[in-house]
């Protein structure tokens, strides 16, 4: 018999939506291991928060398409990972109507985070706007 690991959520037995969520959490987690740790290192060890003014963000860090694309990819991974993760957490503690209602708020929040992050990462350099 196969060993059933209990480190994370048990892999759903049948194919379907829940199995997709199970894989997506792990795939986006792997991507974020590189993207999020890299992002944290850049903003705290390569640069320093004291110098990260809005001008620095839009004119230097986001001066080219490469970093904007990479950060937008990170945003998408974060939206999947953070909100599907919270979905699992909340589903553990909520039942019935409350679960449905709170999950609806969660999905709405995920959409809002995606839109706001996308607007930010596609904004023009501050120098161009002024």
């Amino acid at each position: 018999m196969a060993v059933i690991t209990r480190a994370g959520r048990a892999r759903p037995r049948s194919a379907g939506f829940e199995l997709g969520v199970w894989y997506l959490i792990r795939l986006s987690g792997l991507a974020l291991f590189v993207l999020a740790l890299g992002h944290f290192s850049i903003t705290h060890f390569v640069s320093d928060p004291a110098e990260q003014t809005s001008e620095w963000i839009f004119d230097q860090r986001w001066s080219g398409l490469f970093w904007r694309t990479l950060d937008w990819l990170m945003l998408q991974m974060v939206v999947f990972h953070a909100f599907l993760g919270m979905r699992t957490v909340l589903s553990d503690y909520l039942r019935g109507g409350w679960r449905t209602a709170i999950l609806m708020v969660l999905y709405l929040l995920a959409f809002l985070v995606f839109v706001m992050g996308t607007v930010a990462v596609m904004s023009m350099p501050v120098g161009l706007v002024r």
Partner: peptide, 9 residues
Amino acid sequence: HVLDIWLAA
């Protein structure tokens, strides 16, 4: 964090 970066724009 998404709120503050949105604010930066």
